[in-house]
């Protein structure tokens, strides 16, 4: 299998501040990819650049054989590269059903709308019960479910999840982890940023440790790796 996404030499930041210093990752070859590392070192910035929310200053992003560097978020979604941002507040005054229908806004997703809706309902039965409820009245976990649901409505070829379980209670977190694993089993490759190392290791064995806006260590499938090794990377020896 070809690499679905190749990021090479990517430099990006906000205003005069450069956050990413020539970072490069590959995704799609070995299934899921996990990104981890301390906060404030560029994981989210990398994902925002990949999905077109942030224009990179240098470097290239190739997705599905096409150079998408500097393309608008809209055309990147239309290619099937879908991003669930961190702590997405979505559209507070819209109902869950409205959000789902916005998820299918992209022309490529329209024909699959009904099927994807059933898929989301099956994945998150909790949401299916209250399709007409406004997003602002949902709990953090439920909102995260809607976020992932909206992304599935966009019919992703590659799905980016930025800290899907951040700040959630253990019970609802387990539910979400299970849903993410289900999505992955259904054949959608993922790029996941996650602080929960256990969950990350369950999901993938291809990891990037990101530090100071660069890949400090790449852990490829087959590399032996223990939980303690990752802890050591986080906290130093």
């Amino acid at each position: 299998m070809m690499n679905m996404l190749s990021v090479t030499g990517l430099t990006a930041g906000y205003g005069r501040v450069t956050v990413l210093h020539g970072i490069g990752i590959e995704a799609g070859k070995h299934g899921n990819v996990g990104l981890f590392g301390p906060n404030g070192h560029g994981k989210t910035t990398l994902l925002r650049a990949v999905s077109g929310l942030l224009k990179p200053k240098a470097g290239s992003i190739v997705f599905d054989g096409a150079d998408i560097t500097g393309e608008s978020a809209r055309s990147i979604v239309a290619r099937g590269l879908v991003h669930v941002p961190q702590g997405n507040t979505l559209f507070p005054d819209l109902t869950i059903a409205d959000c789902m229908s916005l998820g299918a806004f992209s022309p490529h997703a329209r024909p699959h709308e009904a099927a994807n809706k059933e898929r989301v309902a099956a994945l998150f039965p909790k949401l299916a019960e209250r399709w007409r409820q406004r997003v602002r009245t949902l709990s953090g976990g439920e909102r995260q479910m809607v976020s992932i649901g909206v992304a599935l409505m966009s019919h992703p070829k590659l799905l980016i999840l930025d800290e899907p379980t951040l700040g959630l209670a253990p019970k609802i977190k387990d539910e979400l982890c299970k849903a993410v694993l289900d999505i992955s089993k259904a054949g959608v490759p993922l790029i996941v940023v996650e602080q929960d190392v256990e969950f990350l290791l369950e999901l993938t064995n291809h990891l990037y440790f990101i530090n100071h806006g660069q890949v400090e260590t790449e852990i490829k499938p087959g590399d032996s790796l223990a939980h303690s090794d990752i802890m050591a990377m986080y906290f130093g020896q």
Binding site: A73, R74, A78, H83, L90, F91, D98, L102, V150, S154
Partner: peptide, 14 residues
């Protein structure tokens, strides 16, 4: 109606 509520999320759904 959506675009006002969250511009980033609006762009991410296309």
């Amino acid at each position: 109606r959506a675009v006002a509520q969250n511009e980033d999320a609006a762009r991410l759904v296309g």
